[in-house]
């Protein structure tokens, strides 16, 4: 997994790339969680994520819940077909913010 963070005012945009599995979840959390603390809104751009497993989905849930607790927002953007399929399999399409 690789990533790039860009800023747009009070929004951080994290562009994730590659495969997100158990091996990279800690790294993903280290990237995303401080941004949630620092900004009002974090966008996770998942266009280039070709694979995500249950560990990756856990990172999305954790990010969403942390943002909610802090009165902030995490929005999933440009979700790739394969990631959307896993989100729907987990029945999270109504829970997570899909933008």
């Amino acid at each position: 997994m690789s990533y790039k963070v860009t800023e747009d005012g009070d929004i951080s945009i994290v562009h994730l790339d590659g495969e997100i599995d158990m091996d990279v979840t800690e790294k993903a959390k280290e990237i995303i969680m401080p941004l949630i603390e620092a900004k009002n809104e974090v966008h996770l751009n998942l266009k280039e994520v070709q694979y995500m497993d249950s560990s990756g989905i856990s990172v999305l849930i954790e990010s969403h819940q942390k943002a909610n607790e802090m009165g902030k927002k995490v929005i999933l953007k440009d979700i790739s077909k394969s990631v959307l399929k896993v989100i729907m399999m987990a029945k999270l399409e109504q829970i997570l913010n899909l933008g």
Binding site: S54, V59, I61, Q65, M89, A90
Partner: peptide, 16 residues
């Protein structure tokens, strides 16, 4: 599955 929290989904996916 409606108890949304991190973890516990891998086995659900396998069964699905």
């Amino acid at each position: 599955i409606d108890d949304v929290k991190p973890g516990g989904l891998g086995t659900f996916f396998i069964q699905q």
